[in-house]
Computed example of a mutant assay.
Amino acid sequence: MRIRVASWTCECRPTTYELCGAAGQGFVRRTDRDKRTVHETSWTLTAPARHAFEQILRGEGR
């Protein structure tokens, strides 16, 4: 399965976020370049994944 990155935050910050998806499902990936870690949310339907990504952009995500 090929994962597509649909949206992302600016690479100028040490922590970046990406909205990723494939086959009608999606997840949010967080990359912390300072700590050299990558974390991903659980796979879910595209709409809830997009909603979670938008909450992160607004500073409301957890």
Rank of each mutant, 00 (worst) to 15 (best):
T37C: 05
S7Y: 05
H39A: 09
A47I: 13
R36A: 11
A49T: 08
A49C: 01
C12V: 04
R50W: 06
E40R: 11
H51T: 15
C12N: 10
R33C: 06
T37F: 01
C12E: 11
V5T: 15
R30C: 07
K35S: 05
V28Y: 01
G24W: 10
R30P: 02
A47P: 00
C10N: 14
R30L: 06
W8P: 00
K35Q: 13
C20P: 02
L45E: 12
A47V: 12
V28T: 02
Y17W: 15
T37Y: 05
G21Q: 09
E40T: 13
E40M: 11
H51W: 08
A49Q: 04
W43M: 10
Q25Y: 01
V28F: 00
V38E: 15
R36E: 14
R30N: 05
V28H: 00
R13Q: 13
T9V: 13
P48Q: 05
E18A: 01
K35D: 12
E40P: 01
C20S: 09
T31F: 00
A6Y: 12
T15K: 13
W8V: 04
L19E: 03
W8K: 13
E18Q: 15
V38W: 07
E11Q: 03
D34M: 02
E18I: 01
R33M: 10
T44H: 02
A22R: 12
A47W: 03
S7I: 04
